[in-house]
Write a protein that binds this DNA or RNA. Sequence first.
DNA 1: CCCTGATTCGC
DNA 2: GCGAATCAGG
Length: 196
Amino acid sequence: MSWTDERVETLKTMWSEGKSASQIAKELGGVTRNAVIGKVHRLGLSNRSAPAKTATKEEKPAAAVAEAKPRPAAKEAPAKAAEPAAEAATKPAPQQTQRPNKPLIVAGQPLPPQPSNSEISEETRANLLELEKKARKLSLMQLTERTCKWPIGDPATEEFWFCGHPCKPGKPYCETHVGVAFQPMSSRRDRKTASR
DNA sequence: CCCTGATTCGC
DNA sequence: GCGAATCAGG
């Protein structure tokens, strides 16, 4: 694969959106996260923060540079040649202070059904509560293929995060949550009078 | 161990 | 320019 115009644009977009290099790599396909990171650096958009702000302002102090860092495995430490020229290029948003509402749920993530459905045994319920206490409280962007994506709390409030415990292989949730997410049917007996 | 980005350097 | 290997950290 090569860095076509399109792919580069996707890279820029996703990177500016805060996506991780590995996520971008998977999205693009045919490249590793290393390739993505390498490209990011070559494009000069390594820092997603706001490095150069006031455009019409003086340049950087340009001083503390060329510091001989203790590099055990590296020979020279040319440091990072700050590129003052890299400006206007990436000026996405000057900080949008407009926060009309709380962050919405981002589509695209496999959000599970709310655990308010079928009946759950008291034992399982207890497990869930315990599990939630121990939740890793991962944010949406911290989720990976291997982290439990069970939501905890109310998405409309700050009290919202994901379980984050190790996934069951091939499943989007941890073992406990897989259990409640994929409950066949009511844990109760048939609605019929079969049980007796 | 899982992950993250940063850097180096042979290609 | 590219990206695997490696480094450094959470």
